[in-house]
Design a protein around this nucleic acid. Structure first.
Length: 591
RNA sequence: GGUCCCAUGGUCCAGUUGGUUAGGACGCCUGCCUGUCACGCAGGAGAUCACGAGUUCGAGUCUCGUUGGGACCGCCA
C-alpha cells in the first residue's frame, strides 16, 4: 500500500481517515498494554497509538520496536481529547490508532541522539553523517538550500539567462589559490586542475554570444579551512554582455530579493546601500562591514597631532593615524584585565598598544586621561561619545589601525549583544582599488582578479610611465551581515588593455601568452563588453539558516583538517594506479 | 608554517592538593504499568581515563612526546 501522507503533515483534516505511514521510530513510550511511538519522517513527527483494542499483533510488534527502526503502519487518524492534546507538537491534536504494523528494518542503538540540539563531537557527527542528517535542523538547512537554488533557477530563467556547464578538468593557473591537481594518464607529467571558479570560461561564453549565462558552479581551492570555507564549494555564477556595473548590481538585487522572499518570506528593501571601498575602510576599517550595529571608527588624528601623548602625536608625525571607537556604556562593562586581553589580541595585527579612556561627565579617566583631558569636548564630539562610554584608540599605520579596530568593533558588538540576529544587512562595496599590495610576497596583485576593468577614466594609469596602482576598478562586492557574500566586476574586453594589465602585474609577454593566450586571442575576435558576479551559495544558505558553520548546509562536508571522516577521504591509492599515472610519491620525513 | 584549546562507559560532562571501589545525566538491557508525549517505578550491564614514555611508594590528575579533534593567524587572485 502506498504512503498516504508524510507523518509530519497529518493534521485534523485527516480525522477519521485510514492512513498508511512510513518512517523512523523517534521515541517509544511503553505503558505496558498501551504503547506510544513518535514516528518521524522528513516533515516531522506524529504520535502512533498501539493497544490491544486496535490490534493485538501490532501491539506485540511495537514492544520490539526501538529507536531508529524503520516501520510502516496503517491506522485511523483520531482527534485527541482536550487533555490529551500536545500543544508543543505540530501534529499534537491528532494521533494514529495503529491497526497494522510492519518492521521494515531494525537499527543498532545510534552513537548519538537523533534530535535537535544534540551535543556530539563534530568528528562523530561527520563519521555518521547520514544519522546527523536525520536531525530536523539539518534537514531544514538542506531543504532551505534547495529552495534557494530553485529560486535562483527560476529567477535567471525568467530573466533570459542560459544555464551552461563549464569543465571541471581544466588548466592550472599559478595565480590565486592553490589548485587541486588531477594527473593526466594519457600525458605523463601533465595535470589538469579543478577550477577555482569558471571565470575565464564564462567570459568566453560572452565572447560566444550567449549574452546572459548562469550556473551553480562547483569550485575547488586547496587552502586551509575555516568555518566559512570548504575546499569545494558552490558559486551562484553569472555573466552578462552589454550591461553596466549598476545594471548587474540591480539584477543581483532582484535575485537576492527573490531568494529572501521564497525562502524566509522576507521582503528586502531595494536598492541596497552602496558605499565606496574607501568609505568602508574609513568608517569600519574593513571591506566587509557589518551594518547591523554602529560603533563606527572615528579619526581624531587632527585633534591629537600636537598632543603631549607621544603615542598619538608620534603616530601622526610618522604618517600614521589615530582612530578609535566609542563603546556605548563600556566604561562599567570592561575591566582593565579585559582591555589588556584586547591589547594582546590586536598585537597580531601589528598594533603596539591600545589606548583607552572612560568618558566621565566632563573629563576622561584611565591611563591616557591626563594627556587628552584638555581636548575633552573636541574628542567626545568627534567620537560621538557620551558619559559612561569606553573609548578605545589605536595609533599606527592605517592598515594596523583598521585591522585592530575593525576586529574590536565586531568582537565587542557580539559581547555586548548589540547585534539583532534577525536582521539581514545587505551592502554593496564599490569603487575598489584595481591592485593591492601583497606584503607577504612584496608585490602588487589584483584586488579582484586580472581581468577586471579599470574605472572609466582610469585606463590611462595602465599606460607606460604612469602608476597603475592608483587606478580604481569597476568591481563590486556584496556584503551580508559583515561577510562577503559575493562579488564581481566589469571585465576587460580588449586585447590591448588586457595586455597592459598583465604587464602591470609583472607578466612577461611570453608568460602572459602561455597562461592566458587563449583569452587574448579570443579578445581579438569581436569580444563584447561584459561583466558578471558570483555569490557563495554555501555562505548565503548558512546565513539564511542562521548557522555559524557552512558545514550545516552542505550534505557531506570536510572537517577542519580537510578530510571526510565517513569515507576517510583522502586516502592512499594502489601502486598500480600510481604507475598508470606515472606518479611517484615522496614520503614525508617522519614516515 | 605558527599560536591556543580539547581527549574520562554508547553520548555529554564532573573528578578537589597526586591517595580506598573513577561519579552524574542521558542512552542501553530486564521486569511492572491503558493516556504517555523529557512517561513513571524497580533492578542491571557498560571504562585500556586517546596512545607511549617519565617523575613518584602511588598518576585520570604532574612532565615530555605521539596521535586524533576544535578555534584562530598565515593562506583563500
Amino acid at each position: 500500500m502506498e504512503r498516504t501522507q508524510y507523518a509530519g503533515l497529518i493534521d485534523e483534516s485527516y480525522e477519521g481517515q485510514q492512513v498508511t505511514l512510513f518512517g523512523w521510530v523517534q521515541k517509544r513510550r511503553d505503558l505496558g498494554k498501551l504503547i506510544f511511538i513518535d514516528l518521524r519522517d522528513r516533515e516531522g513527527l506524529v504520535q502512533l497509538v498501539f493497544s490491544a483494542a486496535n490490534s493485538e499483533s501490532a501491539l506485540n510488534l511495537a514492544e520490539q520496536m526501538r529507536s531508529e527502526y524503520v516501520i510502516k503502519v496503517s491506522g485511523v487518524v483520531k482527534a485527541r481529547s482536550a487533555k490529551e492534546v500536545n500543544p508543543d507538537m505540530k501534529t499534537g491534536k491528532v494521533e494514529i490508532e495503529v491497526s497494522d504494523a510492519t518492521i521494515l528494518n531494525k537499527s543498532k542503538v545510534p552513537p548519538f541522539d537523533i534530535a535537535d540540539g544534540v551535543e556530539a563531537s563534530e568528528d562523530l557527527k561527520l563519521k555518521y553523517r547520514y544519522l546527523d542528517l536525520r536531525r530536523p535542523e539539518m534537514q531544514r538547512g538542506l531543504i532551505l538550500r534547495s529552495k534557494i537554488t530553485q529560486a535562483v533557477h527560476s529567477y535567471f530563467d525568467e530573466n533570459g539567462f542560459i544555464d551552461i556547464e563549464t569543465p571541471d578538468l581544466t588548466k592550472s593557473t599559478p595565480e590565486g589559490a592553490r589548485d587541486y591537481l588531477v594527473p593526466s594518464r594519457i600525458y605523463p607529467g601533465h595535470f589538469y586542475a579543478l577550477p577555482q571558479s569558471p571565470q575565464l570560461f564564462k567570459q568566453l561564453l560572452m565572447g560566444a554570444g550567449f549574452d546572459r549565462y548562469y550556473q551553480l558552479a562547483r569550485c575547488f581551492r586547496d587552502e586551509d579551512l575555516r568555518g566559512d570555507r570548504q575546499p569545494e564549494f558552490t558559486q551562484i555564477d553569472m555573466e552578462t554582455s552589454f550591461m553596466s556595473q549598476h545594471d548587474i548590481m540591480d539584477m543581483t538585487e532582484g535575485l537576492i530579493a527573490r531568494v529572501m522572499k521564497n525562502t524566509l518570506n522576507l521582503d528586502v528593501k531595494l536598492p541596497f546601500d552602496r558605499i565606496t571601498w574607501q568609505e568602508s575602510m574609513d568608517r569600519f576599517g574593513t571591506d566587509q562591514p557589518d551594518l547591523r550595529f554602529g560603533m563606527e571608527l572615528k579619526d581624531i588624528s587632527d585633534i591629537v597631532k600636537d598632543s603631549s601623548f607621544k603615542v598619538f602625536s608620534g603616530a601622526v608625525e610618522n604618517g600614521g593615524q589615530v582612530k578609535g571607537i566609542a563603546v556605548p556604556g563600556g566604561a562599567d562593562h570592561y575591566s582593565r584585565k579585559q582591555i589588556d586581553a584586547f591589547t594582546d589580541y590586536i598585537k597580531r595585527f601589528g598594533a603596539k598598544g591600545l589606548a583607552w579612556a572612560k568618558v566621565g561627565a566632563d573629563e576622561f579617566s584611565g591611563p591616557v586621561a591626563k594627556f587628552v583631558n584638555d581636548q575633552y569636548s573636541e574628542i567626545t564630539t568627534a567620537m560621538d561619545a557620551h558619559e559612561g562610554d569606553l573609548l578605545l584608540f589605536v595609533a599606527d599605520r592605517s592598515k594596523v589601525v583598521a585591522d585592530s579596530l575593525s576586529y574590536l568593533r565586531v568582537t565587542i558588538a557580539k559581547e555586548l549583544d548589540m547585534i539583532d540576529p534577525k536582521k539581514f544587512a545587505f551592502l554593496w562595496i564599490i569603487d575598489w582599488p584595481l591592485f593591492e599590495y601583497d606584503e607577504g610576497d612584496q608585490r602588487w596583485v589584483p584586488a579582484h582578479h586580472p581581468f577586471t576593468m579599470p574605472n572609466e577614466g582610469d585606463e590611462h594609469f595602465l599606460n607606460e610611465g604612469e602608476n597603475p596602482y592608483e587606478a580604481h576598478a569597476q568591481s563590486y562586492d556584496i556584503i551580508l551581515n559583515g561577510l562577503e557574500l559575493g562579488g564581481g566586476s566589469i571585465r576587460i574586453h580588449t586585447r590591448e588593455l588586457q595586455e597592459k594589465m598583465l604587464k602591470a602585474l609583472g607578466f612577461t609577454p611570453e608568460r602572459a601568452n602561455a597562461q592566458f593566450g587563449f583569452l587574448l586571442t579570443a579578445l581579438d575576435y569581436g569580444f563584447p563588453p561584459h561583466g558578471g558576479l558570483a555569490i557563495g551559495l554555501d555562505r548565503f544558505a548558512r546565513l539564511l539558516a542562521g548557522s555559524d558553520n557552512i558545514r550545516e548546509v552542505i550534505a557531506f562536508p570536510k572537517n577542519s583538517k580537510a578530510t571526510e571522516p565517513m569515507t576517510e577521504a583522502p586516502s592512499p591509492v594502489a601502486d598500480k594506479q600510481l604507475e598508470e599515472l606515472y606518479l611517484n610519491v615522496t614520503k614525508k620525513d617522519k614516515e
